[in-house]
Design a protein around this nucleic acid. Structure first.
Length: 103
DNA sequence: AAGTTGACTTTCG
DNA sequence: TCGAAAGCCAACT
């Protein structure tokens, strides 16, 4: 497991918790808010502490949620009314409309 | 200082 | 539109 600085963890969790229902943010966007491009570092934090934040609102740039969590994320998206684009393979989030743009 | 790992991103073919 | 390769960041050895 890759340990992360508590400060970095708090920063990430704070941003994720600030995402309103029905909206989502990509790992890259969150990293950008933190002032870095540490998309992967963000992913590591989510892997360890995502349990205590709305992790389903954090997805990849492709519009897909974290691998292995697609089904659970889908349930949340449907419950919150997040813009989705259903495909034959599965689905993907309509980033163009669901992407949360923090000030 | 250099190498390793990961719920990532972007570019190319 | 899809898959592969390279790039990039944070934290530990």
């Amino acid at each position: 497991m890759r340990p992360v600085a508590p400060e970095f963890v708090e920063a990430v969790l704070d941003v994720v918790a600030a995402i309103p229902p029905g909206s989502v943010m990509t790992y890259g966007d969150i990293a950008a808010v933190l002032g870095s491009r540490a998309a992967r570092a963000v992913g590591n934090v989510m892997a360890g502490f995502g349990s205590q934040v709305p992790w389903w609102r954090v997805i990849r740039a492709s519009g897909h949620p974290a691998i292995g969590h697609e089904d659970r994320a889908l349930a949340h998206f449907r419950a919150e009314g997040t813009p989705l684009i259903e495909t034959v393979d599965g689905y993907r989030v309509d980033l163009r409309r669901a992407r949360h743009h923090p000030e």
